[in-house]
Design a protein around this nucleic acid. Structure first.
Lengths: 367, 367
DNA sequence: AACGACCTTGAATCATACA
DNA sequence: GTGTATGATTCAAGGTCGT
């Protein structure tokens, strides 16, 4: 059986594939990429090229039937590339799509129809949008991104602490204020005209990739354009796969990405979640003699106490169990993190037991 | 031919109709209302309970009216009420719908399918949203409104100058920062519980109605709830028609609206006070490429240096954290303003990082 | 009266490793 | 696959109460 071209090791990493995105994705193996970032065309310029089922040509889009049929064509296109996208995503992978009100509702609905599970919609609030010159509508000052996991209940990567750090210590919100792509970042041709009409700012991709991938992950962009996704992926130590059918865009992207340098290892380390720390059983504090059986623990709020037993359980008034179970029971709470709830006394001072766990973890890191 | 009950003069102005929105709209004549504002059920699909980190329980939207068996069922519902909405709208009328990522993509797609013409999508950026307690996603800090005319090319009302005035003389953008409905405005029952789980702020309706209707216009709200649309319409001298099938909500709305005075200049609108300087997270300098991950920063006193990481934290000798935290630690000080402490090198010169922040703020002010 | 400490709350698709 | 035990996790407003 011939599967070489579909083995994960054969992924065309850090290259730009030449062709239609559906056809090129079809060549990639199932479950092989970690993240997809897609900035699909907002309208397919179907006007004049659209045909009814009976092959008659639709030459105007000015009545209800034609409007509907053009949306139908857009939906078919969306459905086709999203189906391939879903197939090549790893089970715990995720997808980002970006659009404006012209197409984003169709994108979002089709994502849901195909069983993707929306995690957030994110508003890119442009700090320098184009004004509405005619004064007939509101300044169209934002675009919408949708972040979705491959299916309901699937795991996904989210570097919560890194994004919180990026936002000065407060949780990152679903509205991101970023400037549009201008100045020296905006790629221009020899004639001074912009190389691509909808080049996305690197800052946007920086946030997307930092938030939802790990170093070494594979990021695929089926509408690669001038390669912003690839450029930022490379900087951030991720691998990319681009798909682009316009030769001029591919050329611009290739030159652009070749100039990019990956950030050094230390710069790429980001603040990690506590969840990633190794688990330390409470019993180990007793085994190591950091706490003695029979010693009393106090709740940090001072309202409760319990006694340590040799097996690492606690015993309070009429209640026995783990540090978590006893804490929860005493507080009448559905759950309780015993590590941050209990303290012991040393030299007259209350010391949180979590300090002992940190000691053990520090030792583990040293080895 | 008997058309009396469907003549415009027979419109049930400034009343709340008791019943299902499709059935009640069906009784209204073609082309009879100027504006529809619709806040349909969001189909949240919540699974379990959610607790805050302090173990308190979040009071979720678990009402029967928000439950749908599938996307197909939700789409059928949406299609049915939008078809009636379109029929009763005047040819030059318009519609607003509001939703979150759970339902808004389906709403927007169905609007387009039925031939409505989207004029803007508008983001309501909540100044005080509920955080994401488990740190698993971004704070869901916005909802989306869609503003559409009845069909492509149709005329519509847009009070451009009024909105510009409301926005301190600059063109109103498609992102609106408004607080959620709390405090005295939030209607509560005798037991102190909220009368309706999803009451919208009057400021939001104020802006919608002011922007897209004239005095004397008829505004219909098919999901009237506790009557925010009616209350604001009355204040602003517009007529309203509400439809609501829950008797308790109708009762609350009736009492509420009876107390409203037309043209009462209450403090509805968010105070247009001059805001403090916008907070700029340090991470934005990295995202925007003003500083590179791996780049070194020097303290202005020349005694210390540290390296920038991709998430906007610094790493020095044995110390990681924000620009403020690392500065404080290196100086042995309780606190430190990192913005005025750190500098980077460009062309052999030391440049304070605060200069970059000032650049960003200047951009923000310019728009 | 003014201020500060403390408490409550909001349209939420909110966990995961291990046995 | 399922069940159980561990244990990680919040921001801005507004209201209440005590000094």
């Amino acid at each position: 059986m011939m599967t070489t071209t579909k083995s994960a090791s054969a992924l065309p990493l850090n290259t730009i594939l030449d062709g239609d995105c559906v056809a090129e994705m079809a060549k990639l193996p199932d479950g092989s990429v970690d993240l997809i970032f897609a900035d699909p065309p907002y309208n397919l310029q179907l006007k004049g090229e659209l045909h009814r089922p009976d092959n008659s040509r639709v030459d105007a889009v000015d009545d209800a039937w034609d409007q509907f049929s053009s949306f139908e064509a857009y939906d078919r296109f969306t459905s086709a590339w999203l189906a391939e996208a879903k197939r090549i995503l790893k089970p715990d992978g995720a997808i980002w799509v970006i659009g404006s009100y012209h197409n984003v509702f169709r994108l979002g609905a089709e994502l849901q129809n195909q069983g993707f599970w929306i995690l957030n919609d994110v508003v890119w609030r442009k700090s320098n949008p184009m004004p509405n010159f005619r004064g007939k509508r509101l300044t169209n000052a934002h675009e919408t991104l949708i972040w979705a996991s491959r299916s309901e209940g699937a795991k996904y990567t989210f570097n919560y602490e890194a994004l919180k750090a990026l936002n000065e210590g407060v949780q990152m919100r679903s509205d991101w204020v970023l400037p549009i792509c201008t100045g020296h970042e905006r790629i221009k041709g020899a004639d001074g005209a912009k190389a691509h009409p909808t080049q996305k700012p690197e800052a946007l991709l920086h946030r997307v990739i930092l938030a939802t991938t790990q170093v070494g992950d594979v990021v695929l962009d089926p509408f690669f354009g001038t390669g912003t996704t690839g450029a930022v992926a490379k900087m951030l130590g991720r691998d990319f796969i681009g798909i682009e059918r316009e030769a001029t865009y591919r050329e611009v992207a290739k030159t652009r990405i070749a100039k990019i340098r990956k950030f050094d290892r230390q710069a790429l380390e980001v603040t990690a979640s506590k969840r990633a720390e190794p688990r330390v059983p409470f019993g180990q504090l007793i085994e190591r003699g950091m706490l003695r059986p029979g010693e009393e623990l106090w709740s940090l709020n001072g309202r409760h106490k319990a006694k340590v037993r040799a097996d690492g359980t606690l015993i309070g008034d009429d209640i026995k169990g783990s540090i978590h179970q006893v804490g929860a029971a005493l507080e009448g709470a559905p759950s309780c993190n015993g590590w941050t709830y209990w303290a012991f006394k040393r030299d007259g001072k209350m010391v949180p037991i979590d300090l002992l766990r940190q000691q053990i973890r520090a030792e583990m890191h040293a080895h």
